[in-house]
Simulated scan of single mutants.
Amino acid sequence: MTRGQFHKMHGLGNDFVIIDARAPDFSKTLTMTKDKAAAIAHRHHGIGCDQLIILKPSDKADVRMQIYNADGGEVEACGNATRCVVQLLGDGTSIETDGGMISGHVTDEGAIVDMSAPGFDWNSIPLAYAMDTLHMPVGWEDLQDPAAVNVGNPHVIFFVENSDAVELDRLGPMIEVDPLFPERVNVNVAHIKDADIHLRVWERGVGLTRACGTGACATAVAAIKRGLVQSPVNVHLPGGTLILSWQAGGSIMMQGPTTYVFSGEANWDDFG
């Protein structure tokens, strides 16, 4: 039997199971696979989460963060999880991810994190072929003229009249797997009201989510680049509000709440 501890946290309802795997003998206790990650994340048969977070040793930062979506697929970055890890490990924590280096500071309500600079080149998104990423000459039904931004993971953003009216549960999975996006893509629909952004996100490998930190980052950057809003900007998601700041050429700063829900212990053999 291989038992281990975990933390359950969320940022605006985007929830995580966090496993600290920095002990030298941890690999003898738990070897993560796609199927095991999906089993742990399962809402009915597992612990349940949008993302499974594994914290590992790093020779570049305080910790390395490995991220698995609910379907077991590994992804490069997660903004809400980053804030949770900063709150869990302490002020000034530096984090190595497959999407780049991230650092953050604890605040009264959660954390503020430096998400590094966004990418705009078509091959850094990545897209299947070259095109303007601020006004992409593509569309899916009524969703037209998107922007694409990489913030450690790929995002496509549509600015619409009313994001709540978009059938994102139908269009999201269609766009996610379109051949234009060789690594799949996170799909964001947003509208601007009173200088704030109102956002909904279809997250690749997860589905509709109450909050997506990297989606908020990508959408805020695209809206600032298009001149729709000014920095800093409030981004309202179904789970709550994030504050995003960005200047051309600089890093994205994301501030928002985090919640520690509970700690627990599990027998990892139960998950395959």
Rank of each mutant, 00 (worst) to 15 (best):
P257R: 04
P154H: 06
S116D: 13
N267L: 13
T2W: 06
G264N: 10
F181T: 04
V185T: 13
Q5N: 14
V185L: 03
V187R: 00
G72F: 06
R3C: 13
L171H: 10
A23Q: 15
A117C: 13
V156F: 05
E183W: 09
F6V: 11
A128Y: 09
G250H: 10
V187G: 00
H191D: 15
V187K: 00
H45D: 12
T107A: 13
Q87E: 15
I197Q: 00
E167D: 14
A216N: 07
H155R: 08
H10L: 09
M32Y: 07
P173A: 02
T97W: 07
D15N: 13
D178K: 04
F181Y: 12
Q247E: 15
E76G: 14
E203C: 10
T31L: 14
A165F: 04
E74S: 07
G205S: 07
G79A: 03
M115H: 00
T2N: 15
N234L: 12
S124G: 06
I157G: 02
L127Y: 00
A77S: 13
T33R: 12
P238K: 15
F158W: 13
L208G: 09
R43I: 08
R64D: 07
P232Y: 06
G46Y: 08
I243K: 15
I112N: 01
A216C: 11
V113H: 01
V113S: 00
V233C: 09
Q255P: 00
V75A: 09
L180Q: 07
Q247A: 15
E76T: 08
R83T: 01
L127P: 00
P179V: 07
E203T: 08
F26G: 07
L168V: 08
I175Y: 03
P137S: 07
E183L: 12
D121S: 15
G104V: 06
D270V: 02
F26D: 08
F158A: 09
W122G: 02
